[in-house]
């Protein structure tokens, strides 16, 4: 089935089974491997991408469900000016160790800061509640989001 959406700011048309997981379309078909597969069951957030600026777990998203929408993966976000601010904040605050959760964490942080440029600690934790990190203990990530917020992701 033909499916159209905007991927990382460029329109794309794919001929693909509509029940195929968005995650597999990105990683296998399009070789965009920045999006990670952790649990494959919606529980870890490693596969997070933004769909119309909202976090989606791509491991549970049938690709048909992004028809006509805008999908942003970490590869596309890297081209945006906000990326540097958030990525530097993660690096400076120790918000990334092994890095497996990091693409998801960074995209969720961006989605949060875009809507709410000055979130409280509690709002940050709520926004990140679907993303698991086995390395940092989370506080470093919360700190990184706060630093990014002070530096003004919204610009």
């Amino acid at each position: 089935m033909k499916i159209n959406f905007v991927l990382n700011h460029k329109p794309i048309e794919l001929d693909v089974n509509p029940t195929r997981r968005l995650l597999d379309v990105l990683r296998e078909d399009l070789h965009l491997t920045g999006t990670k597969e952790g649990c494959g069951e919606g529980e870890c957030g490693a596969c997070t991408v933004l769909v119309d600026d909202k976090p989606y777990n791509s491991c549970l998203t049938p690709v048909l469900n992004v028809q006509d929408k805008e999908v942003l993966t970490i590869e596309g976000f890297r081209e945006m000016k906000e990326y540097r601010i958030i990525a530097d904040a993660f690096a400076d605050m120790g918000g990334s160790q092994c890095g497996f959760c990091t693409p998801g964490m960074i995209l969720v942080s961006y989605a949060l800061l875009k809507n709410n440029p000055h979130p409280t600690d509690e709002e940050i934790r709520f926004a990140l509640s679907g993303n698991i990190c086995r390395c940092t203990g989370y506080q470093a990530i919360v700190n990184a989001v706060k630093v990014a917020s002070e530096k003004g992701v919204k610009l």
Binding site: P18, E37, N57, P62
Partner: peptide, 30 residues
């Protein structure tokens, strides 16, 4: 199939394999 957050888990096999829907599928998303 609506959001798929139940069905996609139930029909999932493993990474890169298609989910196993044994019947036709109607998407409500559109």
């Amino acid at each position: 199939l609506a959001g798929g957050t139940d069905l996609m888990v139930q029909k999932h096999r493993s990474a890169s394999l298609l989910p196993t829907f044994e019947k036709d599928v109607l998407f409500t998303n559109e």
